Amino acid sequence: MKEVIAIVRINMMNQTKQALTDCGVDAFFAHEAQGRGVGFVSPAVLEGAVQGYEEAAALLGEKGKLYPKRMITAVVEDSMVGCVVETIINTNQTGLPGDGKVFVLPLTDAVRVRTGETGVKSIS
């Protein structure tokens, strides 16, 4: 089993949900998140904000250097990882900064609380 974590733009969430469902992933979590990537904010804008220029501070937004995003978490069988990652990339890739990231983590086990089932049975 693997845990796939994706950070995507808010406006791409509905398309991503539909694409994941089409790929065969019906169970996942979506969380509100804030963050930014390396180099997403111009150093000149940051310097201007530090120096007190209102225009530069406005470019950073009300929440400072953090931008609203959505974090999607899905636990899938190993055989599904390729489809899930490819689906997320194809749905969210614009070629511009801020398209997001996908992380794949190994899971040693999962347990369904209701039945006590473990492993792949607990996620299907």
Results as ranks from 00 to 15, higher is better:
M1K: 03
I7A: 03
R9D: 12
R9A: 04
I10Y: 08
I10S: 08
I10H: 07
N14V: 05
T16G: 07
Q18K: 14
Q18N: 11
A19K: 08
G24R: 04
V25N: 13
A27D: 15
A30S: 12
H31N: 12
E32D: 15
A33Q: 05
Q34V: 06
G37K: 04
G37M: 10
G39C: 11
F40N: 07
S42F: 00
P43M: 10
V45N: 10
G48V: 04
A49N: 10
Q51G: 00
G52A: 10
Y53N: 14
E55W: 01
E55Y: 02
A58M: 11
K65P: 07
Y67F: 14
P68S: 11
M71E: 15
V75E: 15
E77S: 13
D78V: 01
M80Q: 15
M80R: 11
C83L: 07
V84Q: 08
E86Y: 00
T87M: 02
I88C: 01
I88R: 00
N90K: 05
T91M: 04
N92G: 02
G100V: 03
K101R: 14
L107C: 09
V113M: 14
V113H: 04
V113P: 05
T115M: 11
G116W: 11
E117I: 00
E117K: 11
T118N: 04
T118W: 02
G119W: 11
G119H: 04
V120F: 07
S122F: 09
